[in-house]
Amino acid sequence: MADAETTAKTKKKADRTGFEPHIIGFLCNWCTYAGADLAGTSRIGYPTNIKAVRVPCSGRVDAMYVINALKNGADGVLVSGCHPGDCHYNQGNYYARRRFMILREIFSAMGINPERLQMSWCSAAEGAKWAQIVAQVTEKIRELGPFEGI
């Protein structure tokens, strides 16, 4: 019977000293992704904890992507898209905003700190803002410690 009941809480119990969070960023191609590029070309430094995944629009990010990222070892997730009104597809970010508002509520109801899911608006011109967002998110997740759920 062991198989049926295993794997529950056998995930790594990393110690917190020197903990470097893994963060997955789902970045909209039309804005944040370019913004991150700009930060790079302007040589603005920011924490390397974030691994970027380019998506066509923040509205494309299915809640399952976020859940799966956490399940497969991420400690936090950042979804970042165009500012309200600027979405390349007009409304994608508005839908995304509602979706993740609700997902955060689901997280907190089921016992996952909703702060592990962050969202931001960041345009292609905001290289400096991007660096600041990443620093902020990394700090938040670092405080929360390693994710040990699911």
């Binding site: 508005y94 509602r98 993740f100 508002m101 955060r104 969202m119 931001s120 902020q136």
Partner: peptide
């Protein structure tokens, strides 16, 4: 659906 005025206080 969406509304432009949806609460946005969790967004950075």
């Amino acid at each position: 659906d969406f509304n432009k005025d949806d609460s946005a206080d969790f967004i950075l």
